[in-house]
Amino acid sequence: MSEVLGLWNYWVVIVLMMIGLYIMIARDSLVKKVMGLNIFQVSVIMFYVSMGKVRGGTAPILPEGGAEGVLFSNPLPHVLMLTAIVVGIATTALALALVVRIKEAYGTIEEDEIHALAGGDGMDGRSAVQGEAE
């Protein structure tokens, strides 16, 4: 029972992560995959931030009167996650740029249709040659 009370939010975060992961591997729309990527990364960020929380603590900003007897939450996970957010938006931007290029090349952003257009699942050498020569 104490586990439920003490760990429930990690479990919710894991469920969120898995929803993101599922979107990434199961959906065919490339944009949808990127959305899943976003959810996945935000969930990991939430995982880090929740472990930085101290019960009864406050945001790690020193009050004006001095920090005597004030309990702060852990600042380090926050610092790390600021970096992770930046990595997330950078990945999203690059992924979407690739999606635009793919749409221009194939006229669709559904993965199965792209594979059909490209010939097989990409394991076929002939189509590789065509891609190269184009």
Binding site: K33, L37, Q41, S127, A128, E134
Partner: peptide, 26 residues
């Protein structure tokens, strides 16, 4: 890369690579 398939290859790599990177982060 030359040809239409390079962006798609890069995209698949990006998705796999980001899953890898994020699992590493976790």
């Amino acid at each position: 890369g030359r040809g239409a398939r390079a962006p798609m290859a890069a995209f698949s790599y990006l998705i796999m690579g980001t899953i890898g990177g994020t699992l590493f982060l976790l």
